[in-house]
Design a binder for these strands. Structure first.
Lengths: 352, 352
DNA sequence: AACGATGATTTCAACGTTGCAATAGCTGCG
DNA sequence: CGCAGCTATTGCAACGTTGAAATCATCGTT
């Protein structure tokens, strides 16, 4: 059915090894021979057998990408970029959806997956860094957005504390003082939301504003619906109403804006909103959404670079790197300057 | 580093072949031997090398799934089910996102992917069935939702014409007469939207309602935004305003409902809406969305069954099957009976 | 006791590729 | 002419697994 090196070799009148050299391009081959071999390859439609190659090389050229949710815009976008960058390295990506299920995350490492993947990029929800690292001693792993797992595995993330600080400070500089935070997730093990909450409080304190626990809202997931629910809850609570919200994801922010609209609260006039992730939907929302934009392409690049280092020089003793991808605050309509008393706008102290 | 059959064999004091028999469970092995071997396997943490197995068997145990968009809820949900069903067959799924790019679709078939995958499930946007089938003579392919590709490849889809007919008839039976259709996509090659439009017109004609071309709206993609735009356009066109809309996807429907709300049109009182796909968001929308619900699990099962048949009995001459997955109309709040004059409600003739 | 039948286990080879070492062909220099 | 120093090419072996066939052990039957 499909042809092998031997078939091509026979047709071109050379040895199989020479064909291999032409295909891999590594060794020197005379121009004339190369041409003849190439013709034979084209005529027979030869494609290297990856199984054989893997068997020989001990590598499969396949890496895994485990994300909690395929249908989350942030992860979908990131997955697309990782696939794209992987193609540049001639790697194939197997995408796996864990749905935050500890069992699914564990199975990825212990199951036969471990034999088919050269490495794994995982955004853990249910498992701690420790458990991940110990489960898969032999498999190179890169963690996405996991809280400092000192010494367990490589890690790529944005500086969540600073990013949250900048977002909050931006709101402060617009003259907002009653700033709520929506998106805490104390039940997850990856600690991302803790870091964002920390940055949020830091910015408030520096500006002389005392954080109010009742304005820090916990959510179950980061979806629109949770944002809408949290916002409704804030508005209906009967207490003082915030004039700004920092949400820990764009999806939450879109839910918040939707609910604000429902309840007749105008954004940004009465309520400024900042999101996190810079997803497509936010760019076209109404109003367009101010957000913390992690450099997703850079995240993808760094993660693959880490993986490549581990795979090609399996020096177990190299200490894990902890890489920080850049981010920037993208200011759009949802935090436009409000026309109120302008005297207080400059009081907020910018983040360092 | 990792142990092989030979290592296990040495430890258990048997031949490599016997270990292989224990692992595969195929041949008869004495209970005592099996126990000893199993112990050795556990102690060494042996895992079969898939590359070697593939090389020997000529199969990889990996199938491809090519969908246009990972971030579309319908495809994400379907992908999840396919992965789940594939696990039952001990298959691994590689998910690839084509973004409706002809080049990406073609590369999947001609590139090295063809060597690593045992089969491919693809939902084509850019390529025609002909081109797909001819590009990949040797690779078993199952098409999802492609218009009758008589004799080119296996195909799994719902009966789009009937489904659209039922959805439209449902609206007619609620007394609606001014029914628009949103979601035509004449630029795509898969013909799905043509079939739905056909069912829509068929239902109208049977009820004695003449289809109006100006109420058949073309969209660029099936996203919320396109639905919202199309709806705004309908409302602002200055002509008569529809009292119902049949949209070709739930996402479009959600966009339509959003825009209706914006413009002060009440759903379902002034405008009934039916979607297609039965995605999660629609079940929790406001109001909850009446929709055509394709049996996604059945689609996944059928697609995998087709693939299995082709892979395990590569009898090229077996004619391609054209399977229809069941669907049902799920009636929710977006098409609730309106309190208007009730005399006309029964005029509509139900679909056969 | 010899023999066939059955079951358990082993041996051998092959899948397609590439690292390594060896060989063949050529050029230029002493 | 002979030989070192190249380049281009080849042969061999091995990666880990499994199909096919061979061997060995055991038991029941004649």
């Amino acid at each position: 059915m499909s042809s092998s090196l031997k078939d091509v070799a026979a047709r071109a009148g050379v040895s199989a090894r020479t064909v291999s050299n032409v295909v891999s391009g590594s060794a020197r081959v005379a121009a004339d021979t190369r041409r003849r071999v190439q013709e034979a390859i084209d005529e027979l439609g030869y494609r290297p057998n990856l199984a054989a190659r893997s068997l020989r090389a001990g590598r499969t050229g396949i890496i895994g990408l485990a994300i909690p949710e395929l249908h989350s815009p942030y992860f979908a976008e990131l997955a697309g970029l990782i696939v794209e960058e992987a193609r540049n390295r001639a790697w194939t990506v197997i995408i796996d959806q864990t749905l935050g299920d500890a069992e699914a995350e564990r199975r990825l490492l212990t199951g036969s997956g471990g034999r088919v993947m050269d490495g794994l990029i995982i955004s853990p929800w249910a498992l701690t860094a420790q458990e991940l690292a110990s489960t898969a001693r032999s498999l190179p792993i890169v963690l996405l957005g996991e809280r400092s797992p000192q010494g367990f595995a490589d890690r790529v993330a944005v500086d969540n504390v600073s990013a949250a600080d900048e977002a909050t400070t931006h709101l402060l500089m617009q003259g907002r003082r009653r700033i709520a935070a929506i998106g805490l997730q104390p039940h997850l093990h990856n600690g991302t939301s803790d870091l964002r909450a920390e940055g949020y409080r830091r910015a408030l304190r520096r500006a002389g504003v005392t954080p109010r626990p009742e304005w820090e809202r916990t959510v179950n997931t980061l979806h629109r619906k949770d944002g809408a629910l949290a916002m409704a809850d804030l508005l209906d609570s009967g207490g003082e109403i915030p004039d700004a919200v920092f949400t820990f994801s764009d999806e939450l922010a879109l839910g918040v804006m939707h609910m604000a609209h429902q309840k007749g609260v105008r954004v940004p006039e009465e309520l400024a909103v900042v999101g996190f992730d810079d997803i497509e939907d936010g760019r076209y929302g109404r109003p367009t959404l101010t957000t913390v934009s992690p450099d997703k392409r850079q995240i993808a690049r760094l993660a693959l670079q880490c993986l490549a280092d581990r795979i090609y020089s399996p020096d177990n003793e190299v200490s894990p790197s902890d890489l920080t991808a850049p981010h920037r605050l993208v200011i759009r309509a949802s935090t436009a300057q409000r026309p109120g008393p302008s005297g207080r706008q400059l009081e907020a102290v910018p983040a360092t």
